[in-house]
Structure formats: structure tokens, C-alpha cells
């Protein structure tokens, strides 16, 4: 078991003929992910990856022809909001947007629209999803994680890899890793992912990797305190970040005294979460749980 993606997931790649899209499609297929279609407007009718994957002009056509139920988006930021709208309109249930740098007002419109449509978005500005041994939808390196019983949810990319790798070195595997992305307005939140992990029978422990900015970790802490039966290990990046400075991610900024690492760590610890001091310690805490 896992959440969101597994070996039966049928993936359509939006922006498949671009440099990023092609590279990561190759990686996803090599991992064993069931990539059934690609979309690039104007390139419909072509086949890519040794003529194994058909390319369509629209997501609608790709879904109708191949039965794709999950989309992964690699299109440039200026076209990304449109790509998400298109996937939702084509009835895609799960949309994973890797693209970084989407204007925040675009994302507010996307969120409002998706909330009406009922499609789930993961990201944007995220590494995507990895269910080790079954499917990788996004850019998380497949070789750094092994199957196991830990659910991982994170706002970061390479920091998540760091944690998965540290877990692997201790023989600890993951059910699914969810990269929710570093933008201030995104699709799936910590709260959404925690609820899914709580309901997933195979997930026995959960890792939550947060960072400065916003209050999503505090909301997650409230849910953990009230509803979570599985142990959660946490980590918050940005303890040394000065206020008012955006630390790379559009969402990673301490504003008006809100969103500091200290207040997030305090909220998590109050909810019974063991908060690690550095990423490798997460793996050690998991081992002892």
C-alpha cells in the first residue's frame, strides 16, 4: 500500500518533449513508472522514447486515448497555470506540478478553480511523488529510497533526498514520499498528506519536513495532536534565517514575525512530535521508534 501513486498509476507527462520533460520521463520509465502518454501542443502524433510513448496535442486527447489518471507537469512557469487548468478540465484526478516560479496570483486562481473541480494538485515547485519500488512521478532520484513503512511529506527537494538517503543507509524505507513544494500557495498541504498517511494501513510512522514561512506546519501540529495515532518525526529548516529575507523558495520567508522555525518547532513538540536537530538524526529517531 501507499498513497497517491502506485504501480497502477497511469501517467501523462505535460511538456514531454522539452529538455526537462524528456530527461525525467526517461528516468521515470526506467524506474518502472507506467507512463502512458505525453502532451506537447503542436507535436501530437509523434512518438518518443524508442517509439513507446505517444505524444498528444492536448491533455483531453491523451486521457481519452490512453486512460491516463495522473499528470506530471514540466512546462515553463509562464505556461504552467494553463497546463494545470487543462489537466483539471480533462478530468485528471491527480496533477503533480514540478515547475518552479509560477506567479502567486496565478496559483490563487488555480487553487480556487481546482477546489471547484475536485482534482488534487501536488506542488508546484516540488520534486513530486515517489512510492519506492512502484512508481516515481516527478524528479526524486529513485535510487536513494527503498520500500518500507514510513510516510514522508516535505516542502523541500534536495533536503527530502537527504532524509530519504539517511533512512536508506539505516535500512529504513518509505511507503510514499510527497514533495508538496516550496511555494506560498500550493495544492496538497501537510494536513492533506498527514490525513492520507494516517489512513494508509502500511504507513506506520511519518516524517514531516517543514521550513520557515506561513503556518502550515502549525496546522499540521494541531491535526497531529487531535487525530494522529501514528508517531511523527519532524524537522524544520531555516532556524538561522533572518526575518524579511526570502530564502530561495518563494514561500520561505519570515514575515511580520510569523512563520519562524522556533514557533513551528514549538508547535510540533507540543503535539508530541519528535523534532530532529539535523536531517540524519531523523533516521536515527525513526530507528528507535
Amino acid at each position: 500500500m501507499s498513497i497517491l501513486v502506485n504501480k497502477d498509476t497511469r501517467v501523462v507527462v505535460q511538456g514531454i518533449t522539452g529538455r526537462e520533460g524528456m530527461f525525467h520521463t526517461t528516468q521515470m520509465v526506467a524506474y518502472g513508472t507506467n507512463v502512458v502518454a505525453g502532451v506537447t501542443p503542436g507535436k501530437g502524433g509523434q512518438w518518443v522514447l524508442d517509439d513507446k510513448i505517444p505524444v498528444f496535442d492536448t491533455v483531453k486527447k491523451a486521457v481519452e486515448t490512453t486512460g491516463a489518471n495522473t499528470s506530471v507537469i514540466f512546462v515553463p512557469a509562464r505556461f504552467a497555470a494553463d497546463a494545470i487548468f487543462e489537466a483539471a478540465d480533462a478530468g485528471v484526478e491527480l496533477i503533480v506540478c514540478i515547475t518552479e516560479g509560477i506567479p502567486v496570483q496565478d496559483m490563487m486562481r488555480v487553487r480556487a478553480y481546482l477546489d471547484q473541480k475536485g482534482s488534487r494538485l501536488v506542488g508546484p515547485n516540488c520534486p513530486g511523488l515517489l512510492t519506492p519500488g512502484e512508481a516515481k512521478v516527478g524528479i526524486i532520484p529513485g535510487n536513494i529510497a527503498i520500500p518500507g513503512n514510513v510516510g514522508v511529506v516535505s516542502r523541500s527537494g534536495t533536503l527530502t533526498y537527504e532524509v530519504l538517503y539517511a533512512m536508506k543507509l539505516l535500512g529504513i524505507g518509505a511507503t510514499t514520499t510527497v514533495g508538496i513544494g516550496g511555494d506560498p500557495i500550493n495544492g496538497t498541504s501537510f494536513l492533506d498528506a498527514l490525513k492520507m498517511f494516517e489512513e494508509d494501513p502500511q504507513t506506520e510512522k511519518v516524517v514531516l519536513i517543514g521550513e520557515i514561512g506561513g503556518t502550515d506546519e502549525q496546522k499540521a501540529a494541531q491535526y497531529i495532536a487531535d487525530h494522529m495515532t501514528k508517531p511523527v518525526v519532524g524537522f524544520i529548516a531555516g532556524q538561522t534565517a533572518p526575518p524579511g529575507k526570502r530564502m530561495g523558495h518563494a514561500g520561505a520567508i519570515v514575515e511580520g514575525g510569523e512563520g519562524t522555525a522556533a514557533e513551528k518547532i514549538e508547535a510540533l513538540e507540543k503535539a508530541g512530535v519528535k523534532v530532529a536537530k539535523h536531517p540524519e538524526e531523523i533516521a536515527h529517531i525513526l530507528k528507535d521508534l
Binding site: A237, G248, K277
Partner: peptide, 17 residues
């Protein structure tokens, strides 16, 4: 010098730690 914003913040934090 780090790749990734989250890991870059974490690297700063671990230096301080």
C-alpha cells in the same frame, strides 16, 4: 554553496548547531 533552498537553509542551521 548548496543545491536546493531547503538544504541550503539546513546547511546553515547545522553549521550553527
Amino acid at each position: 554553496m548548496v543545491n536546493g533552498a531547503g538544504l541550503a537553509m539546513t546547511t546553515m542551521d547545522v553549521i550553527k548547531l
